[in-house]
């Protein structure tokens, strides 16, 4: 069974079909890139998969559960329990240290555990920057903290929206390396991007255009 399945999902704003009868399956352990120019509907798809929005029609099955019919309250719970979110902007709480930011995610899930949080930061190579504030961290480091935070509750799905959009090339590579490592460990990754180079390193690329899936193919150059 797929971890994530979109069945005839549409999102309509008045006359605009942001998403038009999308059908998509993502298996556990896959690394999928969703590519497309702005306006192609990838942000909308991101919102729907990330439980921040509901489709106008169609079903969205996450681990067999149809999240398109859930209430806002349970969407929050599902998002918290099953999905790790990473954005283009580094959304860190600016007065909390790196480890405290990671612990925030634990806090709302279950119990804040500093040791675990430090382990998560170590996974992304930031063990020695744990007590720094976001203002004291570089862009790349902040994004890595976000990744650690997204992983702390062992989500089934890691959802990233233009994760390297605000990073320079060096930091971009660091982040993509982390993604690669996570994929090797069995994490399911869905990365939304407009950058073909970022899409290339994934296992499979789904290209969107005007709300429809234009192509869906495995990346040949993908290294296991």
């Amino acid at each position: 069974m797929s971890l994530l399945e979109l069945k005839d999902v549409s999102k309509i704003y008045g006359d605009l079909h942001a998403l038009d009868k999308i059908n998509l399956k993502v298996d556990t352990g896959e690394w999928v890139a969703i590519m497309g120019p702005s306006g192609s509907g990838k942000s909308t798809m991101m919102n729907i998969i990330g439980c921040m929005d509901k489709p106008t029609s169609g079903e969205v099955l996450l681990d067999g559960v149809d999240i398109s019919r859930e209430s806002a309250k349970s969407l929050t719970r599902i998002r918290r329990d099953k999905i790790g979110l990473i954005f283009q902007q580094f959304h860190l709480v600016n007065y909390l240290t790196a480890v405290e930011n990671v612990m925030m995610a634990q806090y709302y899930h279950s119990v804040p555990d500093e040791k675990e949080a430090l382990r998560a930061l170590a996974r992304v190579g930031l063990a020695d920057r744990a007590k720094h504030l976001p203002s004291q961290l570089s862009g790349g480091e902040q994004q890595r903290v976000c990744i650690a935070r997204a992983l702390i509750n062992y989500p089934e799905l890691l959802l990233a929206d233009e994760p390297t959009g605000n990073l320079d090339e060096a930091n971009e590579n660091v982040v993509l390396d982390i993604f690669s490592q996570l994929h090797k460990e069995g994490t399911t990754l869905v990365v939304v991007t407009h950058d073909p180079e970022v899409a290339e390193v994934a296992q499979r690329t789904v290209t969107l255009g005007h709300g429809k899936i234009i192509s869906d193919k495995l990346n040949e150059g993908f290294k296991e």
Binding site: T76, R79, H91, V93, Y108, N153
Partner: peptide, 9 residues
């Protein structure tokens, strides 16, 4: 941010 991270209202 906190809502995204999983905080309920």
């Amino acid at each position: 941010i906190l809502r995204i991270v999983g905080a309920s209202r």
